[in-house]
Amino acid sequence: MDHKWSMVVDLDRCTGCEACVVACRAENNVPTAGEDEAARGRVIHWIRVERYWEGEFPNPRVRFRPVLCQQCDAAPCEPVCPTYASYHTPEGLNAQIYNRCIGTRYCGNACPYTVRYFNFFNPVWDKPLHLQLNPDVSIRQVGIMEKCTFCVQRIKAAEIQAKAEKRDLIEGEFTTACAQACPPKALVFGDLNDPQSEVSRLNRSNRATKLLEEVGTRPSVTYLERGTWRGEKT
């Protein structure tokens, strides 16, 4: 059976702790930018926690929204890439082939979620971070785009393992780094083609929405939220 990888982000659970950001950085060899470059907007974080403030002082309220690549079915980044570096895998993932990327950055412009990141310099890690690089994930050189892969290295490892043991993937056998690290379990990863999976169950929730659904990208990430985001009272 084909898989349809999906993530559910429960905004009502998210505490904005950013453990997902750190876990992703460690898992996927995301380089650090440093203060100056971060101030220039060159920081890379495949998943970011967006903060939006509501209300006025002295009663402000902050809302968090983790935003990662939405792995769109109709991804605007794919058709614009002149070299097929951004392409659609048979499992519906939105892959970035680093070796093919020549750095037009068109995909970054076309992405409505602004989740595609450009390597403005060759990657560097402050010591001792350079000692904890993940050998399963390639390092990206200067001049190419990168983005969230849904931890494709973990998906592939689990699939190979299952194939070696001549069995199907088991629900919960693996998950992405961000979902694994999330203390309140706000991030859930799984196979949408399996009707019994956790993500399938959550996708049927009446709290389920998609981010920027009006752009027509058909994202694979679902957000769970009570109506207050839209200004409604619960």
Binding site: P79, P82, T83, Y84, R100, I102, G103, T104, Y106, G143
Partner: peptide, 30 residues
């Protein structure tokens, strides 16, 4: 000039190569 890796700009040109690089005709850049 604006490419991240300008030394690979020739990948926009449709030529058969052992790496199977082929331009994506859907891209407005092509």
């Amino acid at each position: 000039i604006h490419l991240g890796r300008p030394w690979l700009a020739f990948w926009l040109f449709p030529y058969p190569s052992e790496r199977r690089i082929w331009p994506n005709f859907r891209s407005p850049l092509v």
